[in-house]
Amino acid sequence: MDALLQLNKVVKRFEANTVLDEVSFTLEPGMVVGLLGANGAGKSTLMRIALGIIDADAGDIATLGEAPAQLSVAAKEAIGYVPQQPFGYENATVAMALALHRSFYASWDMQLEQQWLQRFALDGKTKVNKLSVGQRQALAIIMAMAYRPKLLLLDEPVASLDPLARRQFMADLFELALESGSAVLFSSHITSDLERVASHVALLKNGKLLLMRELDEIKEHIRLVTFPEGVMPTFGEHIRVLHRREYSWLIDGYRGETWAGALQCQALNLEQLYLELHI
């Protein structure tokens, strides 16, 4: 089994609102996929469907090769998930919460747990309901990663971590993805983090998956080309127009060519790309 998560034409509606519109993609070992999209674009819904927390209205999903609604115990033990708002264990201390959580996972790594507690400066004696937002995120990350899951889903996990903790956490993600052969799906608004961490970027807009590409490829092959007013450019057949705004065309498939009359041909970073697609 190669794919750790596979979605095929997944549709989800909440009443009249289509939250996911025929979304298809595949997560393979070693991939760290940054999931980018506006609030309400369907990022959290996509993760919750993959986990079987909510059902899709149409389409096929294979999570570690199984249907998400009937995940086996073995599959559940190989999945890590950090939701946007962690989470339970409110009246327990950090140490008690970890002890309980640990008991569900045969492959829990105590050393890793201790190392991360120290790194995030979490005290086992603190009560969970006394933790700051950032500390809660740190605890949720330990709980989702200390058993080295094969599939790790992180919903805006680092927004409240300080820059140093974020960097160390990213290094852990690489180790998990590259050395344990896991796949990570990671949603974030912080495009500069995604640019450091992601091997691939998936871009959701209004429930549609506009892009799912290697980050390096996105930067090499996507360009914003601007023409003078009134000029209608013709692009080669290998070029896909992603978006047009007035006299600027956002194109995919650029191979270093030039167009007669083009005023500008600009490479974009993720934030610029995101903005171009949303203006």
Partner: peptide
């Protein structure tokens, strides 16, 4: 500079 339009590897 990860936030440049140039791929990091390049």
């Amino acid at each position: 500079n990860p936030s440049s339009g140039d791929p990091i590897y390049r």
